[in-house]
Write a protein that binds this DNA or RNA. Structure first.
Length: 542
RNA sequence: GCCCCCUUAGCUCAGUAGGAUAGAGCACAGGAUUCCUAAUCCUGGUGUCAGAGGUUCGAAUCCUCUAGGGGGCACCA
């Protein structure tokens, strides 16, 4: 029986309407296992004293049989003390059907697309991309468990000026490798990785492209460079443990006419106009602070041009919601994309843009200067190899996505043995160790265990935390905040470690042993569920 | 100049949809293991929630202003 559902039912019976019943975990034990301020929030609209309402709700809740005690306290809090029998029953429910207990069909199969990373294929991924990758993957996993049908997509910016510059930069390096002078373009890419790539290109094609003007060979160089970069990006992400369902090419949106069709749609709606030889989108009608150019006066499209089409296309594909995870340096872009959605006659709630804040890379307290242009930056791969993928992800997922983040490589490495991620994983390893040592016949016979033997304070505390998972989970899904799972897992691990040092699981007493194995099994299941969301491994030994 | 984000313990960060006495990790000091993994546990304490007003029964949370930090302001991507 779900506590929230119980309260909602009680409210319905009393004819009280409220959009949301807040349930919190009180800090003080005297305030119960759970508490709700709902009486106070409805007091104003009901024009009644909150305590009166609270009393009424409390009385109704007392009769449900879930609670040992229901108190009304302070200005109108309702404090709930759960019956032990309820806790024990819940543990059995969890073990009987873990997925049913831990996941909830909030989305009802609604289709959601999460687009993330989408790094330009002009170089290796850096640490900021890693943060986007960790957050996007965790959010996707979270929503999936929340009953949404999720598709993960990477948008490839393989059209436009940046990849042109990339191609020409590679050409320059190629010439350099063969002794011909050709300058790297002013705003080109100077990273050493292109030098390496050029040398391997020489091995492949020798001097076939050497004595020709760049214009003639540019298609080859752009294509070659983009494919190689994309290959690196895919490999980096794969090694980081992040996968995508779909890779959407920008170039393809031009080639298959999507961009064209979208422009026609906007034109039909009257939101495009010509001025100074360029084609403009009237985004100011929808809250942007100026209109934006779609086709430049020289006839070439802006980046925005395909981006409009991309968002249109995404929504056309039948997603009820699309979520973009962007670096915070793109925040200025938000109003114009929202304008696009509105202009196309779609409700803006269908587009969520999550801004992931910048990552400050430090080394022993000192900032590491990064410049993409000169190719001086620390790559995700370097960090992954030095610090480890699990640790890196965990650090990213113990912060809100919109908080600035200091990532100190030295700290992440140095503290690796007492790193929070190991703390949580260690709980998992310990339980596995117990299971290895345990009499296998007991493990197979856990259905016969009696959870009501779990009466020690540490057992009850652990049990309560365990059963809190669905509440945390729902909150995380609603708020699109996977980091809540991370914090919860640390708290759960902490209570487990405390329990572990206080009590032996494997004892002489067969019944106690089985009850405790049952509890451990529950913790194991919840830890794994959480690890699955965060995308970290669940080691059986450490 | 305009816009967005951030400011909570020495450091890094949480603080759940406005709720009760603001939390964790790290760092520092001391202690715990005959027995399932000591990557563990226990005990120590600190806050002008950047500042000032306002809304509210109630504000770290909402509004306004100020200060500091970061980011963005193109017919660039």
């Amino acid at each position: 029986m779900d506590v929230r559902a119980t309260i909602e039912e009680a409210l319905r019976d009393l004819g009280i309407e409220t959009p949301f019943v807040e349930i919190e975990q009180p800090r003080v034990v005297e305030h119960g296992d759970l508490a709700t301020p709902v009486a106070m929030s409805v007091a104003r609209s009901l024009r009644r004293p909150p305590r009166d309402i609270a009393e009424e709700i409390a009385e109704r809740l007392s009769s449900t049989g879930l609670f040992e005690r229901v108190d009304v306290a302070g200005p109108g809090f309702i404090n709930l003390f759960l019956k032990r029998q309820y806790l024990w029953n819940e543990l059995l429910r969890l073990l009987k059907d873990p997925a049913g207990y831990l996941r909830k069909d909030i989305g009802k199969g609604e289709r959601v697309q999460v687009e993330f990373v989408s790094a330009n294929p002009t170089g290796p991924l850096h640490l900021g991309h890693g943060r986007g990758a960790a957050v996007g993957a965790a959010l996707s996993a979270l929503l999936q468990r929340g009953g949404y049908s999720v598709e993960r997509e990477f948008y490839i910016n393989d059209a436009g000026r940046q990849v042109q510059l990339l191609g020409e930069s590679l050409f320059a390096r190629y010439c350099e490798a063969l002794g011909r002078e050709y300058p790297i373009p002013e705003e080109g890419y100077r990273g050493e990785y292109l030098g390496d790539l050029a040398r391997s290109l020489v091995d492949e094609v020798s001097d076939r492209y050497l004595n020709r003007p760049f214009q003639e060979v540019q298609d080859f160089f752009v294509e070659y460079a983009v494919q190689k970069m994309l290959g690196w990006i895919k490999r980096d992400l794969e090694d980081f443990g992040v996968t995508f369902d779909r890779w959407q090419s920008e170039k393809a949106l031009y080639q298959d006419g999507t961009v064209q069709r979208c422009h026609e749609e906007l034109k039909k709606r009257g939101f495009l106009y010509e001025k100074d030889g360029a084609l403009w989108f009237r985004s100011t009608l929808f809250g942007d602070d100026k209109d934006r150019v779609v086709i430049k006066s020289d006839g070439t499209p802006t980046y925005f041009s395909s981006d409009i089409a991309y968002h249109w296309y995404k929504l056309q594909r039948g997603f009820h919601r699309i979520i973009n995870i962007w670096g915070a340096d793109h925040h200025g872009y938000v109003p114009r994309i929202k304008a696009v959605v509105k202009a196309l006659g779609l409700p803006e709630e269908r587009l969520h843009i999550l801004l992931v804040q910048m990552v400050n890379l430090l080394k022993g307290g000192r900032p590491v200067q990064m410049s993409k242009r000169y190719g001086e930056f620390v790559t995700l791969r370097e960090v992954m190899e030095e610090v480890g993928a699990d640790t890196t992800k965990f650090i990213f997922l113990t912060r809100r996505h919109d908080s600035h983040l200091d990532f100190d490589i030295e700290v992440a490495k140095a503290s690796s043995s007492e790193n929070p991620v190991y703390y949580v994983q260690y709980a998992h390893a310990r339980i596995n160790s117990i299971f290895r040592k345990a009499d296998q016949r007991l493990l197979e016979d856990l259905k016969g265990a009696d959870p009501s033997l779990l009466e020690q304070d540490e057992e009850i505390a652990l049990l309560k935390k365990l059963l809190l998972y669905p509440l945390i989970f729902e909150g995380a899904v609603r708020a699109l905040e996977p980091h809540r799972i991370t914090f919860y897992l640390q708290e759960l691990a902490s209570l487990f470690h405390y329990f572990y040092t206080k009590h032996r699981v494997l004892t002489e007493d067969r019944d106690i042993t089985m009850a405790r194995l049952l509890l451990c099994k529950g913790v194991l299941i919840v830890l794994r569920e959480g690890f699955g969301i965060l995308g970290i491994t669940a080691p059986e030994k450490m």
